[in-house]
């Protein structure tokens, strides 16, 4: 039997680089991300936080060696690892929180669009209701919010700024369409 590789979320790996050339806004889809949603059992929130070495802040991601933990809601985090093998990542995290929490495999559920460039703040204001002003958010800022009617998990990964925008896979192409249409004015 042939070896299958996961399909590209847009069906066209070239699309991203094409849309990013000479632009005020640039795009990337980082490959090989693994994602798991971690739940702390009732009363075990602090233990999970300690065990994973993450922060209890509701709006700031914590960076660990092998993953970033993005807070989702009380006692819930999305752990994003730079790991091609999502089963391995899931197993590693599950082992850490065994008995105090649960892990749901979510690697395929979302596509991460990485957005940056000199005009990225103006660009984000076209769809994002949140205040992403320079004096307001900084590296690590996390939020869930709809952009162009599509639910987005947003993570500011540096001070450039660069934003990682995670959307449900079924919306990946619709979101990409919005991204590129809206970015056209910043060419």
């Amino acid at each position: 039997m042939a070896d299958f590789v996961p399909i590209h979320p847009l069906g066209d790996p070239e699309a991203v680089s094409k849309a990013s050339s000479n632009a005020g806004v640039t795009f990337d889809i980082p490959p090989d991300l693994s994602m798991v949603q971690v739940f702390a059992r009732k009363g075990q929130e602090d233990n999970v936080i300690r065990k994973l070495g993450i922060s209890d802040s509701p709006r700031t991601a914590s960076s660990q060696k092998s993953f970033n933990a993005l807070p989702l809601s009380p006692g819930q985090w999305m752990l994003v690892g730079n790991e091609k093998d999502s089963s391995k990542f899931e197993a590693a995290i599950a082992k850490k929180v065994a008995g105090i929490g649960y892990v749901s495999q979510q690697s395929a559920s979302r596509v991460c669009f990485r957005v940056s460039g000199p005009k990225v703040r103006d660009f984000m204001s076209r769809g994002c209701r949140l205040d992403l002003g320079e004096s307001v958010t900084s590296k690590g800022y996390c939020a869930q919010t709809p952009i162009a009617q599509i639910g987005v998990l947003l993570h500011q990964i540096d001070e450039a700024p660069t934003y990682d925008l995670y959307v449900y896979s079924g919306f990946a192409r619709a979101f990409w369409h919005w991204l590129t249409e809206t970015a056209a004015q910043f060419r």
């Binding site: 509701p58 809601s73 209701r129 869930q144 709809p146």
Partner: peptide, 11 residues
Amino acid sequence: PWCGIRDEAEF
């Protein structure tokens, strides 16, 4: 209480 001040449209 978790996310901070947000627009009504998100609720």
